[in-house]
Amino acid sequence: MATDQVTAAFAKSLGLPESDITEHLAYGSIKEWDSTAHMVLIAELEDVFDVMLDTDDIIDMSSVAKAREILRKYDIKC
């Protein structure tokens, strides 16, 4: 299921268990999601969903919910 793919990508990139990945989890709110992890996350999402994210997307991706919103813009169901 696509929903799980987003959660799994976050868990893998941030090095956290999937149970910690809530929709409201926000960039910078935990030490695991810093600017370095953010780039790992972007690369992972691009890889999993075969999409090219632009610089606006990277800046806008401030939470898990926001990540889904951005991916949906590219017609990805998640």
Binding site: G28, S35, D54, T55, D56, I59
Partner: peptide, 24 residues
Amino acid sequence: DNDTAKRQSQVLVRIMQEWLGKQR
């Protein structure tokens, strides 16, 4: 803090888009 770091990235991106475009 989180806010200042976020503003720095936002502004850096906005400036760089002028020279590089939005694409990475």
